[in-house]
Design a protein around this nucleic acid. Sequence first.
DNA 1: AAATATATGCTGTGCTACAGACTATATTCC
DNA 2: GGAATATAGTCTGTAGCACAGCATATATTT
Lengths: 179, 179
Amino acid sequence: MLSAMMDVMATTTRTPLSLDKPLPGFIPGDLAWHLGMILRGHQTLFAQAVEEMPCSVRGYQMLSTVIHHDPANQQALGAHLGIDRTVLTYLIDDLVTAELVERVPAPTDRRARKIVATEKGLAMLEKLEKRVSDAEQTLLGGLDAGETTQLAGLLGKLSMSVHQAQPGANPCEAMDHLG
Amino acid sequence: MLSAMMDVMATTTRTPLSLDKPLPGFIPGDLAWHLGMILRGHQTLFAQAVEEMPCSVRGYQMLSTVIHHDPANQQALGAHLGIDRTVLTYLIDDLVTAELVERVPAPTDRRARKIVATEKGLAMLEKLEKRVSDAEQTLLGGLDAGETTQLAGLLGKLSMSVHQAQPGANPCEAMDHLG
DNA sequence: AAATATATGCTGTGCTACAGACTATATTCC
DNA sequence: GGAATATAGTCTGTAGCACAGCATATATTT
């Protein structure tokens, strides 16, 4: 099964592809398998890196989103990460309990709460970002610098195309109208 | 947030990377976000494509694995897909109920059962593979042929490197000693 | 033949996501 | 201005699912 993959890898040049067979050598569904494999490996490393974070990976992602993207309310935060609002409630509770974030009344809408990081949360993120960065490097250890750049570009592009194809089911949109 | 991604995308050439910053323009953790986004989009399309399959995506993957990789026993099948053996039991039950596969005594080991596809299962897979293929194409619609090939190669390589880094936690190994 | 390992199945349990209802505020429309 | 509707957040109950732990049958080792 992996040998099929090597065939693809060998054709690093722009082999003209039949449009009917976008992934020569891949069995239909292999894409999912590879994605799953990579995601699982990533998840393992990521979870180790943010071990001390409440709610593990999602806790980190929430904190990171709060600090870097400053979403206007919980909904936006949840939509960005694909987390249901009812779930978000208790996830945020955990971060609040750990004193990493606070719920403050949103200035523009008294129904909404804005999630802001505490000093402790900021320090925590700063510390963990180094580890996460290391984890990402470890995951990408099998690729050289050029390949890493390529992959980042392709993933970004694909991610955007997914965004456009499924605007409704998609976390990204929420950030589009928030700052 | 997407603008950061565009920066990376712009550098399609082999920009020399500092080893400390493998993903310039990415916030640490963004890799997970992009992977998650892509996987979610993929999952949506995939699930639609195999709607009529019992157990949805996993059902398809099990059937596909059984037919294309012919694992010697349930354990191998489960390990390949990262599914716990106790879970596998009732997943296979569903496929058996739908008459897509059968449990036959493994020829070499009377403890084990071999999962084999029925005629109906084979026909089903054949039919669904077309749809899955289409779904994969749809997902990759934002990329041109060259990029698709590149991505396939990179994902394959990365997938293998994950395999080597985490042999224990990893589904792939199970297939290494089976045919 | 005794001890240990492996393949599978079964049962019970705990976690978690989600649906649905509820409150408070915003917005829209007459 | 006030009624109707929409939206943000929370709470409660539930169903599904993964997994631990035990049981059974067979293999392998000693």
